[in-house]
């Protein structure tokens, strides 16, 4: 690290680069740090800089029935939604590799990714009109779970597709010449290669769904609130430090989830690299 060729070749240019990088990361994290600090204030309203230090708003959030219910609802919605999203996204990505026509492939790929750019409110209104029509879907979370899953499908699709595109395209033909039927090819050839990418897709899907508020506004039954919805209402009623405490907790969860995942996948790539280095010397 001391005197790498890159550092030497960059020379004095690296100072401004470093400063810009630091400023950028401040822009990223400063608001978050402000939120975190306000959550430990002793006052009953949000104030910055905080006055004193206490964890009373945390204990408040964690013991309050309303917050706890909202957390549980969100957990359920996010879990089921993630499972659906992973299923649909993976199947879509797998199906795409089986298409022969290149034009059809690129069209369908686009159609899978475009929903990322569609505002959630469009889904929300659409699904809301469905729920008005179908009584079966009222007073439960099914439609919300489905809607959230649809929002998350593109993320899973992108992750899994990238995993599949890294694989040798000859693997499937070779498996078929070796006598494998398609279920065996999916199970023994495709899936083992993309498990990691499915996991990454799941992590993203979960994070997206857990944070999503627009669909919750439209599709939660009366009296039920997801965590983001609870935060939204809390922010409208009173700016209590409980709100920032809750968002700190949610952020921590996200950091743990994503950070844990990237640590895990780094270890995997490191292992793969070790293996190929061994091959090179063998």
């Amino acid at each position: 690290m001391t005197d790498s060729p890159l550092r030497r070749s960059i020379g004095w240019y690296r100072m401004p680069i470093l400063i810009i990088a630091l400023l950028t990361s401040l822009v990223f994290y400063l608001p978050f740090l402000v939120v975190v600090t306000t959550s430990w204030t002793q006052t009953s309203f949000i104030i910055f800089p905080p006055e004193g230090f206490s964890l009373q708003s945390y204990t408040g959030v964690l013991t309050d029935q309303e917050w706890r219910d909202a957390f549980k609802v969100s957990l359920r919605v996010a879990s089921v939604g993630t499972v659906i999203a992973v299923l649909l996204g993976t199947l879509g990505a797998l199906a795409l590799t089986r298409l022969r026509s290149r034009a059809a492939r690129s069209w369908i790929r686009t159609l899978f990714i475009v929903p990322m750019a569609i505002p959630p409110v469009a889904y929300a209104v659409g699904l809301y009109s469905v729920s008005v029509q179908a009584e079966l879907l009222q007073d439960n979370l099914a439609l919300l779970m489905l809607g959230e899953a649809l929002l998350a499908v593109p993320y899973v699709f992108v992750m899994v597709s990238s995993g599949l595109s890294q694989a040798d395209p000859a693997l499937r033909p070779v498996a078929s010449t070796l006598g494998a039927s398609w279920p065996l090819i999916v199970w023994r050839v495709d899936l083992p290669m993309i498990v990691g990418h499915m996991l990454a897709g799941a992590v993203f899907a979960f994070a997206v769904i857990f944070d999503e508020v627009v669909l919750s506004v439209f599709l939660t039954p009366i009296g039920v609130k997801t965590l983001p919805l609870q935060m939204l209402t809390a922010s409208q009623e009173e700016l209590s430090p409980q709100l920032t405490a809750a968002s700190t907790l949610v952020s921590m969860l996200a950091v743990l989830l994503l950070g844990g995942y990237s640590l895990f996948s780094n270890r995997r790539t490191a292992r793969a690299r070790r293996l190929s280095r061994k091959a090179a010397t063998a």
Binding site: D168, A170, L171, V174, A175, R188, V189, P192
Partner: peptide, 9 residues
């Protein structure tokens, strides 16, 4: 195959 296409996993 040219790439041998061994199943990497």
């Amino acid at each position: 195959f040219q790439s041998y296409a061994l199943f990497p996993h």
